[in-house]
């Protein structure tokens, strides 16, 4: 049953020790930072986390890893210039890493959400990351058997939710959100705007069937969205529109 709650703490209160948690975001875009902070405060531990990265700097997922609350991480790109908390935990042997190519990571969650028992992917064939996996030649091309990744919970950030739990996202902050929403038993969403009216059904990106808990939390996304709407209303181009292509800018120099 869809619920709207008032705080991030309430939103994550069901997450128990040992849960598998899918966490959205690519870089800062679409990262449900307030939900991750609430998960930190909740004390849940022994978690398996699925995210593209393994935390950056001293915030969000990086802090969960620092406090050794993550037993295992499934991700595509753990090593970054500011992933020092992951690096330390990994070198100390205190976190398990399953490294997955980014497209396989997304598709494995898509498969889970779509009820697919496994799929043959050409990605990774002939590489270390396919070692030990079943390989099949189909129409002269080699594929590797990949299994679904299911979550007990998904923590994602969308831009807005309507009263039916239908979601829209903002620009590249969409990234893993719609896929993770389908792949978890219980999907928790933080949004900048909780709408009073239904979204235009043609515009819905994630239908409410995939959404369980919604919490409204204003972030910088809302500020940029309002700037954009003001510009459009005033007949000006959106601030993020390019006025020139890279080639035109390079030619000017």
């Amino acid at each position: 049953m869809l619920e709207f709650v008032d705080t991030a703490a309430e939103a994550v209160s069901r997450i128990t020790d040992g849960a598998t948690v899918l966490i959205g975001g690519f870089g800062n875009a679409g990262q449900p930072m307030e939900l991750i902070d609430a998960l930190m405060d909740s004390g849940a531990t022994g978690l398996t986390v699925v995210n593209n990265n393994a935390g950056q700097a001293d915030a969000g997922l990086a802090l969960l890893i620092k406090e050794r609350r993550v037993a295992k991480i499934i991700c595509s790109f753990p090593r970054q210039s500011d992933s020092w908390h992951f690096d330390e935990a990994y070198r100390a042997g205190e976190i398990e890493l399953e490294l997955v190519p980014q497209g396989n990571l997304a598709e494995r969650m898509r498969a889970a959400g779509a009820g697919i028992g496994g799929f043959f992917s050409p990605t990774g064939y002939g590489t270390q990351l396919a070692e030990g996996k079943e390989v099949r030649e189909i129409d002269g091309k080699h594929y590797v058997l990949e299994s679904p990744i299911r979550g007990d919970f998904a923590l994602i950030k969308a831009y807005a939710a309507d009263p039916y739990g239908n979601l829209v996202y903002r620009k590249t902050a969409r990234n893993f959100g719609p896929v993770m929403a389908t792949a978890a038993a219980h999907t928790i969403v933080q949004v900048d705007e909780v709408l009073d009216e239904p979204l235009n059904p043609e515009h819905v990106v994630t239908p409410g069937i995939y959404v369980d808990t919604v919490v409204g939390i204003p972030t910088g996304s809302g500020v940029k969205e309002r700037e954009e709407r003001e510009a459009l209303t005033a007949g000006r181009p959106k601030p993020c529109m390019a006025t020139k292509t890279a080639a035109e800018l390079a030619a000017q120099k």
Partner: peptide, 9 residues
């Protein structure tokens, strides 16, 4: 520390 991102895809 290994990291692959989207390179293989």
């Amino acid at each position: 520390i290994p990291a692959v991102g989207g390179a293989m895809d």
